[in-house]
């Protein structure tokens, strides 16, 4: 072996050793590595040391010095690494890793909002935008424009909270239909979530204010079949792919024909699959289209209204509607999102 070859071997050892020392991560691995490099019997350094006497005498001094320098450097590196690993091992022992992490407070979305958001997301995918309207409405928007005949028993279904000055707290989100149709040219595809009011006592199953979601689609040639198709699609998305729907007759002054949609679902209450009514719907009554100043021969459409609060109650197994209003933090925390 020439001096040059020997020095190459020494430098190679230096470079490899540095790489391996950096990579070692436990004290055990460190010991194995040290033996492989500086071990007396099988260490790479000992091998080179053994070659040293075979070199020409003139070169031995230079070669010996180089090897020694590398040996010192490696030993230094090994020691540094050992100290680091020993310290880490000691620190690790002082952490009781069974103790809890440090949580921030968790916020929560109201369960009714969870339901609304899910409904809204499905309809947004099929082209619906969001319309909002006032809760303090006029008699005309709440009743007259929606084809309620004055003094009709149908209004008994909507026992109304009247405000001073003749306005009222809207009894449904349907006034938003009329406001939207007055303000925008068809085609219209909107969803109107919002709070509505009825003169009901506040007990386990009734609340004087609750949320409703209105849907409205107006265009040329919209038919009852479109209504069925869209709402059945919604039901399958909301309740699961194979959910069956059925439509039966109903009555709302502002739709004709009027219908209710039932879905066949298992609410998880142990009663198994059964039909439940989830929304009222129908073709928008021509009188409503005309009340908004549109031509009811040219434009037709459908609308629906549903109650996300009722859905939330059955979905989350709430026994009392007042839980949704009481704002008890222990109730709200059950809907935490982190």
């Amino acid at each position: 072996m020439t001096l040059t070859e020997f020095l190459d071997q020494v430098h190679l050892l230096r470079d490899h050793a540095a790489q391996h020392i950096d990579a070692v991560s436990t004290l055990e691995d460190w010991t194995t590595l040290r033996n492989r490099i500086v071990g007396r019997k099988s260490g790479r350094l000992s091998e080179l040391l053994a070659i040293l006497p075979t070199l020409p005498a003139d070169d031995r001094r230079t070669a010996g010095a180089a090897l020694n320098a590398v040996k010192l450097a490696i030993e230094e590196q090994l020691e540094q690494r050992r100290a680091l690993l020993a310290k880490a091992a000691a620190t690790a022992k002082s952490l009781d890793l069974t103790m809890p992490g440090r949580d921030p407070w968790c916020g929560a979305v109201h369960p009714v909002t969870l339901v609304i958001d899910e409904i809204v997301a499905i309809f947004r995918e099929i082209g619906f935008t969001i319309a909002l309207g006032p809760e303090a409405e006029s008699d005309w928007y709440n009743f007259g424009a929606l084809n309620f005949p004055p003094n009709h028993p149908a209004m008994d279904l909507h026992d109304t909270l009247y405000l001073e000055g003749g306005s009222l707290l809207r009894t449904h989100t349907s006034p938003v239909q009329v406001r939207t149709m007055q303000q925008y040219r068809p085609p219209i595809r909107v969803l109107a979530p919002g709070r509505v009011y009825r003169r009901d006592f506040f007990d386990a199953t009734h609340a004087p204010a609750f949320e409703q979601i209105e849907g409205l689609a107006i265009d040329e040639g919209i038919s009852f079949s479109d209504l069925k198709a869209t709402l059945s699609y919604f039901a399958r998305r909301f309740y699961g792919g194979a959910t069956r729907t059925r439509f039966g007759p109903s009555f709302f002054p502002f739709t004709e024909p009027s219908a209710q949609m039932d879905v066949e679902v298992d609410l998880g209450d142990g009663r198994g699959k059964r039909w439940i009514e989830i929304m009222g719907t129908g073709l928008v009554h021509p009188a409503v289209i005309e009340a908004a100043g549109l031509d009811s021969e040219r434009w037709s459409g459908w609308a629906f209204g549903m109650g996300p609060g009722r859905i939330a109650m059955s979905r989350y197994g709430l026994p009392d509607i007042r839980l949704l209003y009481d704002s008890d933090v222990r109730f709200l925390a059950q809907f935490a999102v982190c």
Binding site: T129, A131, L132, Y184, I188, A217, S225, A229, Y233, P249
Partner: peptide, 22 residues
């Protein structure tokens, strides 16, 4: 009502923008 078709048909997008509060 159940005898009527419920096949989804193409629709035109609406003209109503989202309410800014939403």
């Amino acid at each position: 009502y159940d005898a009527l078709s419920d096949e989804l048909k193409p629709f035109r997008p609406g003209t109503v923008p989202d309410h800014p509060f939403y």
